[in-house]
Each structure stands twice: as structure tokens, then as C-alpha cells.
Design a binder for these strands. Sequence first.
RNA 1: UGCCCGAUAGUGUAACGGUAACACUCAUGAUUCUGGAUCAUGUUUUGGGGGUUCAAAUCCUCCUCGGGCAGCCA
Length: 560
Amino acid sequence: MDENTNLLKNFIQRIIEEDISAGKNSGRVVTRFPPEPNGYLHIGHAKSICLNFGLARQYGGVTHLRFDDTNPEKEEVEYIESIKTDVKWLGFDWGDKMFFASDYFDKLYEYALVLIKKGLAYVDTLDAEKTREYRGTLTEPGKESPDRNRTVDENLELFEKMRNGDFKEGDCVLRAKIDMASPNLNMRDPVIYRIKFAHHHRTGDKWCIYPMYDYAHALSDAIEGITHSICTLEFEDHRPLYDWVVREADAPCRPQQIEFARLNLTYVVMSKRKLLRLVKEGYVSGWDDPRMPTISGLRRRGYTPEAIREFAARIGVAKADSTVDYALLEYCLREDLNRNADRRMVVLDPLKVIIRNYPENKTEWLDGENNPEQPDGGGSRKIPFSREIFIEREDFMIDPPKKYFRLSPGNEIRLKHAYYVKCVDYKTDGSGNVTEVICEYDPKSRGGWSEDGRKVKGTSHWVSAADAVECEVRLYSTLFIKPDPEEGGEFVHNINPSSLQIIEKALAEPSLAEARPGMRFQFLRQGYFCPDSLDSRDGRLVFNRTVTLKDTWGKISSRN
RNA sequence: UGCCCGAUAGUGUAACGGUAACACUCAUGAUUCUGGAUCAUGUUUUGGGGGUUCAAAUCCUCCUCGGGCAGCCA
């Protein structure tokens, strides 16, 4: 369903198809997903993952998972596992094609030698500040470093010393010799190796020089035989350098870099830095907080991989910066959950109802269809009914506005799967709050329908007071109050103070006692919920609200 | 005021020289044992000016607006 085969083609598919029909790369398609293991994956990465793996799948190719671990100071092993988990969870398989840029450190070093020998790279002793000065500005050309014209032998010797640890960090770097006057700053003799006496998670202390992204990434692609190297727009200006590197280093193949616009979503911040801040400053409980747009957060929230893949397919791929409406993500989610989540009844804000003509001490077990969207109704479960039940407080009004179909004095509604009940009385406390509603039921309406075909407009969910199971319910809404969290300059000022509302004692129908993490439910008339993977366990049920149901009445009533 | 990229309903994305469409959102109605789902209907679109052409969202040109780039980050 989430295959984009019947969808219209995007510009990348068009490029690939042209390449295939032109016989380029012998018609092979090899893509890659190249995360840096320095953070958690988020929905924006999901777009890239679906794109890369989706393209390969569509054109009979393969996708490599390659960790871009060229900066030992920023990267950690713990992220590698989380990234693998997330990619797998999304439904993609890299087979035996998992690599690390660090796998190629030896080869990369050899390529550097090639460049030096061709007179296309040199060791520069300018310090970082001088290097910046010499680079020039956006409007002025740069100046050549005094070291730029060292002999090949000198460079070879110096680079060797760099590798051997004869210099301190910052003493010198290896630079590509391209053009200090280029209007593209990336071409002004970019640094390709720097000294770092840092322990690398895979190569240990073998190296004290580490390659820079532009150099390592291009050559890693080439080494792996990547045909289409798909990345985001900010690397567009790097493409000439990418091409220069693979060409001048005499790499075994020439992958093609293609850039697309990264995902932006309303009500969401996506940058690693900002997400980190949300975690570090305690605005959320962690990377997997159900309000986070991380894959782990979405997973814990109850999102399905299918919904995310469908979303990725629907948003398309283009080169124009854009911000997708969060409503589309929720639409994809509901579409999936509506089809697949079993229905249950849970009362979040209980109001007691006494059915005064129903026998005391009687309990009957009624059938409740699990999912009306399934051909056989998805099977059914038993629901106990008795004289004393709870309904949602907002499902009763003493003095209802017009078009209010729920319970009110004299009005009849249906209790889902049970009986028709009519409100005959109610009780209030000293301040006028309703404490109890008295109803009479129609015994002939068992199962929730009657032979006379009488119109009963409203249907409420309910739980039997004596049989209800207590649970905690966490109601989540958007983390930000503004569609553009950046509005006003500081995103933390737009944090939604009620993005999490905890209901400590909601009342659930007894079948929910069996709910376990990994299951997903629709709580009738409320939304979709799932047991929290961390906090829900036997004897202490905790549900996260994944997404609300569309709420037409809420819209009408709040509009007055 | 350097270089690169972009601009199509409210939001995304299509149409690739032949007369603008799909989805989401929004609105209205039908239907419904979930005010859900489903079904039907509707509002709204090519940033601006020139040019090429029988014909331009598509090609050319100028402008405007938006984004990216001056890490020994990726």
C-alpha cells in the first residue's frame, strides 16, 4: 500500500529511470542511508530512509546503511544500535550491507596520497583562525596559503608525520588544492584531513588524523559503488567538491549526488540541536518521549511504521523548501489505525449512572464487536453490564444546547453494545455539579437496537462500575502551541504547557486488563491509544493517546 | 550586496509546449449502534513585468520574494 509505484514520479525517480534506460551503471541502482551516529533518528530521517530504501526496492537495487563516523569526538556507540532499531522498525532491510566510513580509513589514506602525488593536496600549517581569514568572504576571493606550493615530497613527508602523531592537534591539516578564488567557498582549498587525538569507537587509537565529511563521504560512496547519492539541499554547493574528489582521487566509480528538500512539519522542531535542548533542559522526558518527533518517540506514542511510510509516500519529494501540515501525518496514522486497531471502551472522566429499573446484583455479559472495519467485525469480546455504570461526564448535560445528541433529562441515548437508556432524574452537589444520573433502560433494546426502529441519535461509551479496571491515561497534544515553533524567535517560548495531560484514574472495560505494549486500541469516541512501553505492566496499566479521533462535535460546540 | 537553489489552491505534490489536477485541510449535506468511518458536493491555484509561439505553469529575459553557503561539524 505504501509502495509508491502507482503514485506519480518524482524528479529523482525520473533521473534514475533516465540513467537506467541510458545504461548508466549497467542499470544498477545502489543507494545509501548515511546517518552520523551522534543522535537519534527523527521523522525527517524517516523521509530519507523511505526515499533511499524505497527507490532501491522499486528499481531492483540495494540500499546500504552506512554510519558516517568520521568525527570521533561527537559519535557514540549507543546511537548505532538505536539507528539500526529504528530503520528496521520502519520496515527496511539492509541485508549484509552495513558499513562504516571508518571501515575505509586505510583506503581513504591511500587516496589522500594519490591526491598529494598529483599535486592536488598539501599540508597546511596555517592555524584555524588564519585559515578562516585566508578563505576570504562571500563577496571577496580568498588568499593562497604560503604552504600551498610545497613540493610533493615535502607534503608526503609532512602528511606521514601527521599520521604518526608528530604534530599536535591544530598544528596542520591536509587541504585539497583547488581554487582559493572560487565563488563557491567549498572549493577554496577545503580541509580534507585534520588531527584529532581522539579514541574512535571502531578504530580505537589507530588513527590521529580523521578525514572530513566532503572527502570521506564522496569516496565512501565511490568505494561502495553507490550509484545515486541522495542528500538534502544544503549539500548542493558541495556537489562540485564531491565530483572533484571522486574524479581526482581516481575513485573506482562516480556516484551521482542528488539533493532534495528536507522535511519540515508544522508544530515540530526537527534540528538535532533543538531536540537535544528539549531533552537536556527537561521539556520532555527523553529522546523517546511520546511528544518527540524522533522515531523512538513516535513508536512509543503508538505510531505505526505503515503510517509513517504512507506519510513519506504522500508528501512527495521535491527541491522546494516546504512545511508539511501535521494534519497529514495524523491522517495517515488514523487511516491505518482505523483499519487495524480493536475498539474498547474507556471512560476518562467518569460520571455515575444508575439504571433504576435494572435488577441489582445482576451482571450480564454482552458482545462487543472488535472492529467494524474488519470483514467479520474483527471478532468480539465480552463486556459486563450492570445497574451501576459510568459514562463520560461530557456526555450528560442538564441544559443542553441544540444539536446536543447526548444524555439530558428526558432524552434517550444508546449505550454502545448494551441498551437504550433514558434520563429520568439526576443529582447534584451543593455547588450544582452533577453527581449522579438516574436512568431507565428498555429491556427490549438489548445489544443496542430495538425492533420498532426508533431513532436514537446519541450513542455513549460506558463501563460497568463494579467491573471497571483502573488505568492511567496520558493525553498528548502538540509540543508547541504555534504551527511555526520558531515564531517570536525562541522556540522554547512556544512550548505547549498542556502537551501532556495525565489522567490518573480512568476506568476501562475489563478486557483491557490484558493490554500489553505493542498493542493498539481505539478507545471508542476518544482516540487511539497504546500501552506505554516503559511504564505499563501487569497491575498498572498506562495508556498513551496516540492521536485523537476527528471530533466534529468538538469543533461545532467550541464554535458555539 | 558573491555563488548556488527554489517559487503552482490554506498545506504538500502533479501536469515536462496543447489550455491546471490529486491528496490533506476547510465548509455543506447524506448515512451511521463511534458526532469515528464511509459517500456526495463545494470554496480556493500557476509571485510580477516583458518576450518566443497558433498555443506557456512549462522555453528566454528582467525583477521580486524565500532558502543555503565564510567548521580543522555532518
